[in-house]
Nucleic acid binder design. Structure first.
Lengths: 151, 151
DNA sequence: TTGCGTGCAAAGGTTTTGCATGGCA
DNA sequence: TGCCATGCAAAACCTTTGCACGCAA
């Protein structure tokens, strides 16, 4: 069983990609953005390599893949210890459909949701995969102003 | 205001598309699936037309556009009266990441979530855009069996 | 007849794949 | 040296757009 493990090489490209993701751990980055950023750093990495590494990092649990509701481009976010542990049951994401900000929500109260839905509706919610879409406080303020002036 | 309304023509293609969506109102269908189905019915519709009609139907509020977390292909679902009304604040969706079933969840309890998040975290959740991902009861049972036999 | 809707083809973007080469261990 | 990783190019998808033609009203 132990002989089945494949050797992994340490390459410049892999290091570059992981570094950028770590430095931007508070954001989610697209493959295109990642490639572009590495070009600007003087260490360009091919698209194929970027996608292959992202796929691997995701499989290793170091980064997490998301899909925006916008255009069909995926994005990734460095998960660090959280992603490695994989035991973050009370952690949800809030994504503002207006400005795109991604808010990490650690709240005990929300564990009630998963428990309620599981017990009363027989569905096990996976917080790691679930994102709430809506308006952040800043954008909600803008919308009210806009609606008021529209009418 | 009334003179601004554009004339809309009734075409075979539009009827076919809407019919298929209505017949499959319990599911979400991709553009590709829709096209393929119409070919099999002997009434093929071009891709451009499919996307243009879906865009229009969405703007009219008759169907709703979703984005799966899988590949970058969107999907649509006929919303009927619910989508038309657009006042379904306590309605969330549960999507099983295993079998793909989409469950509509009308539950008073969940309005508490939106209220809590809005009051304590300053974020207005839009239930219509939010989907909970996880495991349905049937697939949850399968997984347990699988995990038990894996170890 | 008018002009909206359609189909075809081409373009745009994201992601994947094949293959020869480069580089880590 | 052996084998994995990379880069390039091409392909595979999904979706959008331009343009001429067809068809509903």
């Amino acid at each position: 069983m132990t002989g089945n493990r494949k050797n992994e090489y340490q390459t410049k490209q892999k290091t570059q990609i992981l570094s950028y993701l770590e430095e931007n751990a508070t954001r989610h980055v697209t493959a295109g953005e990642l490639m572009h950023a590495l070009v600007e750093r003087g260490t360009p990495v091919g698209a194929a390599t970027v996608y292959r590494q992202l796929e691997r990092l995701e499989a290793q649990g170091l980064v997490r893949r998301y899909t925006l509701d916008d255009r069909g481009s995926a994005c990734w976010q460095y998960g660090g210890a959280e992603a490695k542990a994989g035991t973050c049951h009370s952690h949800f994401h809030l994504k503002c459909v207006c400005c795109g900000i991604l808010i990490h929500l650690d709240c005990e109260h929300l564990t009630e949701i998963t428990e309620h839905v599981e017990q009363d509706h027989g569905f096990q919610i996976d917080p790691a995969r679930t994102t709430f879409y809506g308006l952040c406080d800043r954008c909600a303020g803008k919308q009210e102003v806009q609606n008021a002036s529209d009418k």
